[in-house]
Nucleic acid binder design. Structure first.
Length: 271
DNA sequence: TGTCCATGATCAA
DNA sequence: TGATCCTGGACAT
């Protein structure tokens, strides 16, 4: 479920419904039960996101819930609802009016502020944070021989970026995914970073990733589907074999470092 | 009912 | 590089 826009959207959602209220905190599944018990009945003090990490402050102790959704985790915020499938429900936060349910996270742990600092300190700049400094990402990119497709998945380069943004921004910049970081110009990195800064906040608002801003070519028009199952409109992500929306050539796909990479061999020839 | 797959990351070898 | 963890939706049988 998650690239950074999801985490940031969740932080806002959780604050909107829980901030300042006393909340019931449980772990029906049991795996977070001991920690949940410590927080249960506490006041929800705030939620914050950094990259794909979500931090929830509950109670007066200063302790935080650190959540990372991983590949398959889901956190949904709803109105009151019955407790279903408790065997997979890691964390449930509720008031009389709202329920938040966490299933399948990679991480759900009670941590100290110092531990939060360590998590955040290991991350690169997050395009969704106001003070983010893209130059920190450039410092790492510019001295790396790794392909840019690899670098953009590195949370030390740009925190919150995932496979969709990786593929889509490389397409938007017409950049060959295998270009070594050291071969990128500073200006080129600046355009990549600007794309993140432009696209990601919009996705927080919309709850979906849209990257297609230009009109499609006539020959690509009407050849579905352009909208990925995740709900957004994209150029190449998960469109293998379908015509490129710009040039019409079949979108390519390959496995790269354990993840699927999609690109247009014609549009993204340049290095 | 079963199999595959996913917007992720870590760990061992 | 491969195995592993976590869950559920889509699709095939």
């Amino acid at each position: 479920m998650p690239e950074g826009h999801v985490t940031h959207r969740l932080a806002r959602e959780l604050e909107a419904v829980f901030a300042g209220r006393s909340v019931r905190v449980t772990s029906p599944q049991g795996r977070f039960a001991a920690s949940a018990g410590l927080l249960d009945g506490g006041r929800f003090a705030g939620a914050d996101a950094y990259g794909k990490n979500l931090f929830l402050a509950i109670g007066e102790s200063g302790a935080l819930i650190h959540i990372h959704l991983g590949l398959i985790g889901k956190l949904r915020v709803d109105g009151p609802r019955p407790l279903l499938n408790p065997e997979t429900l890691r964390l449930r936060i509720e008031t009389a009016d709202h329920v938040a349910e966490l299933r399948g996270p990679q991480t759900c742990a009670l941590i100290t502020p110092a531990e939060q600092d360590a998590v955040v300190g290991a991350l690169g700049p997050d395009p969704l944070r106001p003070a983010a400094d893209g130059e920190r990402g450039w410092a790492r990119v510019s001295r790396s021989e790794r392909p840019v497709a690899s670098l953009l998945m590195d949370q030390r380069v740009a925190a919150g970026v995932g496979n969709i943004y990786r593929c889509e921004v490389l397409f938007r910049q017409r950049l060959n995914p295998m270009t070594p970081g050291s071969q990128l110009s500073h200006r080129r990195w600046g355009r990549i970073w600007s794309d993140f800064v432009e696209l990601m906040p919009q996705a927080v608002l919309d709850g979906r990733i849209d990257t297609v801003l230009e009109p499609h070519t006539p020959e690509a028009m009407g050849r579905p589907p352009r909208v990925d199952r995740h709900g957004g409109e994209v150029y190449v992500y998960r469109r293998p074999g379908m015509p490129c929306l710009v040039c019409g050539q079949r979108v390519r796909a390959r496995e790269f470092e354990g993840r699927n990479l999609y690109w247009c061999g014609r549009c993204q020839r340049s290095r």
